[in-house]
Amino acid sequence: MRSQAAGFVTRVTARNRLPLDYSVASLRLVDFLIDGLRKGGADRERARETLFGLGAYVGEVLVRRAGAVWEDFDADQRAYFGQPVGVRMPDGRVWNPLGKVHNRFDTGGPTESLQTFYLTLHGRARRVVA
């Protein structure tokens, strides 16, 4: 997933000069990008690759800033989360950044903010070296 996130950032920043720098603050930009897809009339299928890239990016922010590690979900987790991968936090909790991006796209609004998701996330490491 790390390479997925890096490839997405390379493609998006080359064309648009977006400051996707894996910072917590950049998650607000992810919120705006998803809102723009919704307002632009994209349906989930047309936005599928972009949403996957944004989900990989959000997960990578969790890896770099919160001490998470990427993890392939087992069959039960895949059924529950609806995604093949997620992240495991230092305290053992499992989170689904790909699903969180889809939730933001589907419902929008501040209750599904990716930046708020990070800031209220349980299980973060206190200090992570990126």
Rank of each mutant, 00 (worst) to 15 (best):
R2M: 06
R2P: 00
R2N: 04
S3L: 14
A6Y: 05
G7H: 07
G7I: 00
G7T: 07
F8V: 03
F8L: 09
V9Y: 03
V9T: 12
V12F: 03
A14V: 04
A14D: 15
R15S: 11
R17C: 09
L18K: 04
P19V: 05
L20G: 08
D21S: 07
D21C: 01
Y22D: 03
S23L: 00
S23F: 00
A25C: 02
S26W: 01
S26A: 15
L27P: 00
L27Q: 02
R28K: 14
L29W: 01
D31V: 10
F32A: 15
D35S: 14
G36N: 15
L37W: 03
L37N: 07
R38N: 07
A42P: 02
R44I: 14
E45D: 15
A47P: 14
R48K: 15
E49N: 09
E49Q: 02
T50Y: 00
T50P: 00
T50H: 02
L51V: 08
G53A: 05
L54G: 07
G55N: 09
A56N: 07
A56Q: 08
G59N: 07
L62F: 14
V63A: 06
V63G: 09
R64P: 06
R65H: 08
G67L: 03
A68M: 13
W70Q: 03
E71K: 15
D72F: 04
D72Q: 13
D72H: 10
A75G: 01
Q77E: 15
Q77T: 06
R78F: 02
R78D: 05
R78N: 05
A79K: 15
G82D: 10
G82E: 13
Q83A: 13
Q83M: 14
P84K: 12
P84Y: 04
P84I: 01
V85M: 08
V85G: 01
V87Y: 02
V87P: 01
R88G: 01
M89R: 13
P90V: 04
D91R: 12
D91A: 07
D91Y: 11
D91T: 13
D91C: 08
G92Q: 10
R93H: 08
W95V: 07
N96P: 08
N96F: 05
L98Q: 05
K100Y: 03
V101C: 06
H102L: 14
H102P: 00
N103G: 06
N103H: 09
F105I: 09
D106P: 02
D106G: 04
D106V: 09
T107R: 15
T107H: 15
T107V: 13
G108K: 09
G109A: 08
P110Q: 09
P110R: 10
P110M: 03
T111L: 12
E112A: 14
S113P: 05
L114R: 00
L114A: 01
T116M: 08
Y118H: 09
Y118N: 05
Y118D: 06
L121I: 01
L121Q: 11
G123W: 13
A125W: 06
A125H: 07
A125Y: 04
R126G: 13
V129M: 08
V129I: 12
A130N: 12
A130T: 13
